[in-house]
Design a protein around this nucleic acid. Sequence first.
DNA 1: TAGATTGTTAATCGATTAACAATC
DNA 2: TAGATTGTTAATCGATTAACAATC
Lengths: 206, 206
Amino acid sequence: MNTENIPDIIVSRIPVYLRALQRMSENGITSTSSQELSEKVRISAAQIRKDLSQFGEFGKQGTGYHIPFLMDRLRQILKVDRIWDVAVVGMGDIGHALARYPGFANRGFRVAMCFDSDPAKIGTKVGDFVIRDVANMQADVKEAGIKMAMITVPAAAAQDVVDKLVEVGVCGFLNYAPLSLQVPPGIKVQHIDPAVGLQRMTYYIE
Amino acid sequence: MNTENIPDIIVSRIPVYLRALQRMSENGITSTSSQELSEKVRISAAQIRKDLSQFGEFGKQGTGYHIPFLMDRLRQILKVDRIWDVAVVGMGDIGHALARYPGFANRGFRVAMCFDSDPAKIGTKVGDFVIRDVANMQADVKEAGIKMAMITVPAAAAQDVVDKLVEVGVCGFLNYAPLSLQVPPGIKVQHIDPAVGLQRMTYYIE
DNA sequence: TAGATTGTTAATCGATTAACAATC
DNA sequence: TAGATTGTTAATCGATTAACAATC
């Protein structure tokens, strides 16, 4: 199974395929075709076949794809055939929601630690977590070997938090702060910004 | 100022430029260059100049771009030179966070109504809002003339909610449910899925 | 076998980059 | 004027699509 030098844009579609397959699987469906998957994810069938064929031959001519097998392979490719511990930094409303989000567990992630700088919050509980002092963040994250973090602090604090986490080995960031983060080569950032999402649609509305 | 037939991929970058400009503006900076902006948003200077030139000539040779002027123009292009009312459907943790999100007001949006189907929640307050019964959603949204909605209901309920909102004229959806929505032509959907965001990064981590 | 659907090739399409004349 | 930076062109690069032989 080849996983070398795959274009970023293909990698970014694999989680979408996996999500649709997981949903079909939960509905008791055990096989599918590129055509059927295409209708679910709104990506052309040719594109789906081409994307999947970058990694190996996962289907069978005439019958399509066996869903449990394909899901296994996609999970291996994305390295979510294991559970990744993730830190949440910034326990406002969004941090709160992420700490209790039910959609991580079956997709390869577990919130392992939550941090905030507010003395009024430190030591209080959110879900199963005691909120930790961000002053100990580097030591705690390093000791736990955490590689991924979700950043939900104010814009003014985000870059500093990210720099500190990069220092202790975090290499993937889900950024909710409304700015572009500067990171060294090899460090990955994904942005989530609801206002940007809305602004990408108003252009098209009369 | 031309705003016809602009590729989707260019439109999707404009909110990112605008966000960076807004941040510079708040820091008292009044002019910038494609080179400087490039470093902030991590998009090449040539690309930024090309993108902006699709819409008009917003800069001056030798001196770059006047930030307040450029922001005005980008806001006009994105139609966020006004305030859009947005409905939130599903008042779990994420709906809660969106209803109180401070990042909408200065970027062209205002949460106007919140809906849930849980009798225990209906009538209670979240921030300034009384949670409304989703049974009255179509009438309420139609009467208010709302064009955009954020969907934070469970996956199993999302498509039905969207179908109902399309019927009463909503044409932009920010979807937090973990599935691809099916919508008629002309209706826009943006997806936000933190697990997908994380899965797009684990591929690259050793 | 006949029908269906993959994996792959070649063609098309679109996006990005490099370079520079125009001009502030 | 000299220096800086835009807007734009042409070249390059990469992604998508269409078509079909292979094959289950």
